[in-house]
Every structure is written in C-alpha cells, then in structure tokens.
Nucleic acid binder design. Structure first.
Length: 585
RNA sequence: GCCCUCGUAGCUCAGGGGAUAGAGCACCGGUUUCCUAAACCGGGUGUCGGAGGUUCGAAUCCUCCCGAGGGCGCCA
C-alpha cells in the first residue's frame, strides 16, 4: 500500500476519486492513531469494517469498541463515544467523511461525503462495459472443466445445472482478469460405450431384418419390448432408434455382417456429440477444448502415475489388482486403481488428467461435480498432491442434484432407461434465458427443485423477466429521449441526485465490482443473480419516484446518467450470467 | 455402521459472528391524463430443526441428537 497524502484543505479536491477501499484505509489510519492514544490494544486485535445493513446507519461501520470492551473493562458504548470524540478532534477530512455516529450496542458509523457516491458513479459511467472487471487474476490461467458427460445420450436437466454453473464460473473468473479455458472431458471407450454400440446395432438389425424376434424386458411399468438381440442394460432412448435408422438409410442392410460394433459406436458417438454441442451452443456455451480420456493412455501419463505412486509406496499389488493406499489419507479402505482384468478404474485416469491440467500450466483448475462425486475427488487430490503437484490449485464445486417434478411426482432420471427430460426440451418449454437463470439463482449447494409445470406457467413472472424488463425500460426511455430531441449533457452535475431513491440506487450500482469479485472468489454465481434483482428493485423505485424527461435540463441529464449507469450494470451483470439484455419486451 | 451436504415465513430460497433475520411466489386491497401495469404502493407471518457450549454478541462457530438427500464397488 502506498501512502496517499490526504489534502488538508477540504473542498479543493472535490474531483478526487475515492474508492470504498481507499476510504476504509483512510479510516483505518485515523482509527489507529486514536486507539494508540487510548492505550494498548490486545495483540490479536484487528480493525473490522462492514457496510451496515440499514442505510440509516451510514455507509461503513466499525465494531472496534465492541471488540475492545472486555480488554478495556469498559462499556462498549462508552468506548465508542470516546473514539468518536477523539476522531472528530483529529480532524477528519470532511471532503471524505461527513459524519461519525455511535449507535446500537457501540458501533461507530461513518457517513461518506456526497462526493464519494458521485465520484464512484462517474467512474462507473467512464468504465462502462468494463465496469465490474478487475485484475485479481491477471496474468494467471484458469481451466474450468464441466459437463464432461460421456457421449451416451442427450444432455438432461441434470447436466444443465452443471453446464450453466461451469460456464458462468468461467465467465466470472474471466471478469476477474483470469485467462480462462473451458474444457469438456470425456471417455469414449469402456463398458458404457460398448453397451451403447450394441444397443444401436440391435435396433439396426431389427430394421434391416424385420423378421427378427422380440423380447420383453423390465417389469411393471418399466416393461418394454425390444429386439431379440438387445443387450442387457441396453440404452432405450428414441435417439438410439434414430441413429440406427439413419445408418440403415445410408447403408441398407450391408452392415448386418459387420465384424464388430465399431461402425455403430462411431456413428452413435458422432451423432450424440453433435447433439450435445448443439444443445450447449443453444445455452450460449462454447467449449475451448474437448479432452479425450484416451489421450492419457496414448501419452503414457496413466502408467506414469501408477509407477510414481509405486515408488512412493502408495500403490501396491494385491489379488491381481493394483491398489491405491487411500488409508494413508484417512480413508477406511484402500482403493483399486487397476482391476485384475488389467482395466484401470476411472480414478486412475482422473489423477492423470488432473496432473495433466497442472502440467499444462494452469494456476487454477476448477471442476464442476455432482454431489455423487463428493466422496471420490479427495482421492484424486491426494493422488495429485503425492505426485508432487500443488493440489490447492484444484478447486471442486459440488452441486446438489436437480429434482425434477412433473405434476406432483418426482421423475426418476436414468439415461439408459430413457426416463429423463432433455435440456433441449426444457429450453423449448421455458426458453434459454429462464433455463440459465433458474440454474443460477440458487446456491449450487442446495437441492434444486424444478417443477416443469411451474416453470412453464411462471415464465411470465419469472425473476429473469423482471431484470430484463428493467433493462428494456431504460432503453425505452432512451428511445423516448430521442423522439423528443432530449439534450443530454454527459457531464451533468451528479450531486443533483439527492433523492433517496437516487442515492440508494447509486449505492446499489457501485456494489457491482465487489459483488463480481466475491462471486468469482467463492465460485458462487447466485450472488450475481440476487444482486441484479436488488439493482432492478432499486431502479424500479427510482423510476417510480423520479421522472427524467421533462425535468429541468440539468437534473434531467443527471438522472439520465443514472439510468445509463443502471443499464450498464444490468447489461454487464446479465452478460456475466449469459442471459440476454433485450432492448424492448 | 462410517463420511459429505442440507434443515430459515404457507411454498421456493437469500443471509454464514454483529444493530429490528430478508426476498420472490402465494393471499388481500389500492395505483395508468405520466419515459413500458411483464410495473408500483400498502397489508404479516418466523421456537432460524432440537439441546448444550464458545463469545461482549450465534441463524452464522464447536459438540451431540433428530429429520431429508447423497456417497461408502475390481461401476463412472
């Protein structure tokens, strides 16, 4: 922190811009001087500031007196009074701090000079589309890995939460200055893909050879008729039949004698992946890289991991399998890395994959996982760490599952059984913006109850429309201004914005940068959603109380500036969330 | 049995050491000669799951209990 020489002549530097942080630093300096004069503070004592919940309590509060009550063996209010008294005697720079009050149990409440708000607002307007961006992560690279569904079927509502969370966290990091890559990890080998291929082949065979018999599988309501050759645990979705049909259209019956399932696997994978990419694009999601698990075997990375773990005594042979000593890290059991069949479990490539991420030079690797992975990712972190990498660079965001409700019944989701609602169907019903917002408006940590019927019915009252409406309204004001040849003075005196609705809107708007930073640090996009609602509320109140067009020209221009500032914040905020900001609705 | 997450208004959820715990939905009433009524204004609810503990101060931190969901595979 460099020292800023504070002007001793209030009034001369009215144009000086003071950020909240500078304000806090300034107060901290002054408070230190005062407290030093009041005797020794306890060693662990640290000054804490917080914005009061109630605007009547000023702009910034300090709880020093409460913390020091025990140490000084005096009533907190009394201490606060003394601090306030001594602060006023300093003297405090009145171009920054307008008032110091003692309130409640002993809080020191500071009121900023009006100049503070207007200078912040001016900065907002100047920075415009960059307002909210920061450089916390500048010069650093982050990788956000998400979706990562294997190509066995269309994306479902459950994947939707993952996709939107990952994309938005990537966006938040990017707003915080990180150089961000979005990556999709997949495995197109293994058991599930074999079953997929066999399922397609069976459907194809039935088409090419209609005389083939059928069988009935499942029981009760799940009872279905499938071709005789249909594999056990085969995929029942309609898309399988469609893939089979397009193969039949293209090749006729010539594939009946195919030596293996390769052609079925390849075309199914291609078709399903195309669908996934299309669905993601619809949500506005564009991956930078697709990472095939296979490459970890091709490069030998996987075997390298096993070898190194053996060297460290953390991997050993037992009953034909290779085990990972997870008991070393406090687990009850060790874990199999390579089955006795020679096939690795998913944990091994996972460790290799994360090593690969760090080897690629990422300073941060964020994973978006469903709650079912909550117990397994520590193995990966421990593996990475014991290979000599810094696992602190890996950050896992866990989201709770989406409970889909149709009518009053929770729908059981299973890709294989074809009991699911696809992400595309969801977007068809409620739209892309609502879909994104719905997944983002709640903490990823809580279960998301998604009632399809309600989502459809509520679409008109959905909170996302409220935000967009506020934005559209501002655009409408601008159109009106154009119509009446409104003369806008971009340098209007912003201190004219003294109405309560105006200052609370300004206070709301200038919180945007810290809200974005905080959301990025905690990987919590819902903070933005909640914040934007507060902005929209504050704007709508301003709109209700203060007219723009028709007021005296200077006030009208000042208010127009405020409306423009609101539009900037709404637009930037919605853009962080990947939601459109329509000009009219 | 062990581990993880959650339990806040009728419902869905914010808040995660500080002042009187907040929104939206739902419910009732009012508002349009006025820049979009997809809006605004007014009306009221809480043993913050329970019990202890730490603290000047707990919805928030710790312990235990109860309840919901998830995980504990040579499945991913």
């Amino acid at each position: 922190m460099h020292d800023i020489p504070w002007p001793a002549w209030p009034g001369f530097f009215v144009r000086v811009r003071t950020s909240r942080l500078e304000m806090q630093e300034y107060l901290e300096q002054q408070l230190r001087i005062v407290l030093d004069g009041m005797g020794d503070s306890p060693p662990a004592f640290r000054l804490e500031f917080q914005p009061p919940a109630n605007p009547e309590h000023g702009d910034l509060a300090c709880n020093a007196a409460l913390q020091l009550a025990r140490h000084f063996r005096r009533a907190p209010r009394q201490i606060a009074e003394e601090i306030a008294e001594r602060l006023r005697a300093l003297p405090i720079d009145s171009s920054r701090i307008e008032g110091i009050d003692v309130a409640g149990p002993g809080f020191l409440n500071f009121r900023f000079a009006a100049n503070y708000l207007t200078s912040e607002l001016r900065e907002l307007l100047d920075r415009s589309e960059d307002f909210g961006r920061s450089n916390a992560g500048s010069g650093k690279k982050a990788l956000v890995e998400f979706v990562s569904a294997n190509p066995t079927g269309p994306l479902t509502v459950g994947h939707g939460r993952n996709a939107v969370l990952g994309d938005t966290i990537a966006s938040l990091l990017s707003w915080s200055g990180w150089e961000v890559s979005r990556e999709y990890y997949f495995n197109d080998a293994g058991r599930q893909m074999r079953i997929l291929a066999a399922s397609v082949r069976s459907r194809y065979t039935a088409l090419a050879n209609p005389s083939m018999g059928t069988k009935t599988i499942g029981s009760g309501e799940d009872k279905t008729t499938v071709p005789e050759s249909f594999p056990e645990d085969g995929y029942l979705g309609d898309y399988i039949v469609e893939i089979a049909r397009s193969l039949f259209d293209e090749h006729g019956a010539s594939l009946l004698d195919a030596d293996d399932d390769t052609v079925f696997k390849t075309s199914a994978e291609k078709c399903i992946f195309e669908g996934i990419v299309r669905t993601l694009a619809r949500l506005g999601i564009l991956m930078d890289t697709f990472f095939n698990e296979k490459s970890l075997y091709d490069s030998g990375r996987v075997w390298d991991v096993v070898e190194k773990l053996r060297e460290k005594g953390l991997a050993y042979d037992h009953e034909g399998a290779v085990w990972f000593k997870t008991t070393e890290f406090g687990k009850d059991k060790d874990t199999v890395l390579i089955k006795s069949t020679g096939e690795p479990t998913y944990r091994l490539p996972d460790i290799g994959y994360h090593v690969d991420k760090l080897e690629r030079g990422f300073d941060l690797a964020v994973d978006i996982f469903g709650a079912d992975h909550i117990a397994t990712f520590p193995d990966v972190l421990n593996g990475v760490e014991s290979l000599g990498y810094d696992s602190d660079k890996i950050d896992v965001v866990i989201y709770q599952f989406v409970t889909l409700i149709r009518g009053n019944e929770p729908v059981k989701m299973s890709t294989r059984k074809a009991q699911y609602v696809t992400l595309d169907e969801l977007m068809d019903e409620v739209g892309e913006d609502v879909t994104r917002f719905f997944f983002l408006m709640r903490s990823s940590n809580t279960h998301l109850e998604f009632d399809l019927k309600l989502a459809r019915e509520a679409s008109e009252k959905n909170p996302v429309f409220y935000l967009q409406y506020a934005h559209a309204r501002i655009c409408s004001i601008l159109r009106k201004a154009e119509e009446v040849s409104f003369e806008f003075d971009a340098q209007a005196d912003l201190t004219l914005l003294s109405h309560e609705a105006e200052s609370s809107l300004i206070k709301e708007l200038i919180r945007f940068p810290q809200t974005v930073s905080r959301a990025a640090e905690t990987r919590e996009p819902h903070r933005i959603a909640n914040y934007l609602r507060d902005v929209a509320v504050a704007f709508t109140q301003f709109y209700g109380h203060c007219r723009i067009i028709g007021e005296s020209s200077e006030l009208a221009s000042a208010r127009m500036s405020l409306a423009l500032a609101t539009r900037i914040v709404l637009k930037n905020g919605l853009s962080v969330l990947g939601i459109s900001a329509p000009d009219r609705m």
